[in-house]
Design a protein around this nucleic acid. Structure first.
Lengths: 203, 203
DNA sequence: TAGTCACATGAAGCTGAATTCACATTCATG
DNA sequence: CATGAATGTGAATTCAGCTTCATGTGACTA
């Protein structure tokens, strides 16, 4: 976590530093991202950086936390208005579309997040292990519930299906990122996609 | 590419070095993998390493090349006996199952490969750019052909679907890798999966 | 005015990992 | 054996990037 001094900075300066950090980590994986890069982009002195953070790892952890929080908040506000009354597939649709929209609005955050999830770097594995509920486990729970509720047929493998849904979700964000933005047909693609899945696994 | 000296080595020694390298790069991403690790595992002197290879990057490129070659050869031999007469979905089934089997038989190679594909490291991007036909493009061509042949309906997005199929493919290998081996039901899962996809996009 | 506090600075130091290099050893050949 | 070309070796060097530290600045207080 950042030090007190960081929080005491003016919002403008905090923002400047954060923006530089996001830029650096969005363009590079953990190892390739340099503290020097953040320092140069934000125009602070290298010494100052260590007044604000315990070091590179500290900054990275902080970023990952922010990204997670923002995404959850976003999904919560934008799409998860009424998770209880939705059936599994509509919920999935909401989640995917929300995820896409988030990726569209925050491409750099998503770049960092996707990299974080896939990375084999010790630092990333370390952080991931401390974060109890992964996207994977979240989906798995959702699927098990859906089976109980009768939305989804019994004979699918929840673990694999969760993995499948998660990876398709990442593929979607990647797609948006690579294509540099939403196209008119993106949401149609998602609807098609969910229909495919729905046909395959609904009861 | 390795230097002449490497090729002159006895097969046993070449194998020992290659094995050490595969181990090192399977357990770590490009940046985290150390030449020192390869040196220690293979029991050669650090100086010798530079007699055989131009450096870390050179070794890595060589490994990636080997992995690609082995996988292609494997798919070619094991599953692609008659690509012409298969319809798109049977071909897909073959490819997936072949991929899974390859992952089962060569978990370390697949670990390196998957990491290579996802990595943002300059070295990886560099190598990827020089390799013309990606798995993605291969699928895209397959899909376009399938649309022409009438196996797949016209109104899907080939680019996205290729991305989708590729990412599901990776998810599958990852799954095998994480679960540490094939289960009795793995092939059933794949069949189900293809059925789902087939229902969704066939004409 | 002096003292203290909070933040700012960048040169200097540290570290770990890649790479080099000067010397040692092996081995095929005459 | 003798020779030297090929190969082996690991201590020393280089280097990039993270981090520390000694010192500076300005604002607020007594």
């Amino acid at each position: 976590m950042p030090k007190e001094t960081f929080y005491n900075l003016s919002d403008v300066k905090k923002e400047r530093i954060l923006d530089a950090a996001i830029d650096e980590f969005a363009k590079n994986d953990y190892h390739q991202a340099n503290v020097t890069g953040v320092i140069e982009k934000s125009g602070i002195a290298s010494g100052s950086f260590y007044q604000y953070f315990d070091g590179k790892k500290d900054l990275y952890k902080y970023l990952i936390g922010i990204i997670l929080k923002r995404k959850l908040k976003y999904l919560d506000k934008e799409v998860m208005n009424s998770p209880e009354q939705l059936n599994f597939f509509d919920l999935l649709r909401q989640l995917y579309k929300g995820g896409i929209q988030f990726a569209e609005e925050n491409p750099r955050l998503v770049a960092i997040g996707n990299n974080f999830i896939n990375s084999k770097s010790k630092v990333c594995i370390d952080i991931r292990e401390k974060q109890k509920p992964t996207s994977n486990q979240y989906f798995e729970k959702l699927i098990k519930d859906a089976i109980k509720k009768g939305d989804v047929k019994k004979d699918i493998d929840p673990t694999f299906t969760a993995k499948f849904l998660t990876s398709v979700n990442y593929a979607l964000s990647d797609f948006i990122y690579a294509e540099k933005g939403l196209k008119e047909n993106t949401m149609v693609i998602i609807d098609d996609l969910i229909n495919v899945i729905e046909n395959g696994i609904k009861k």
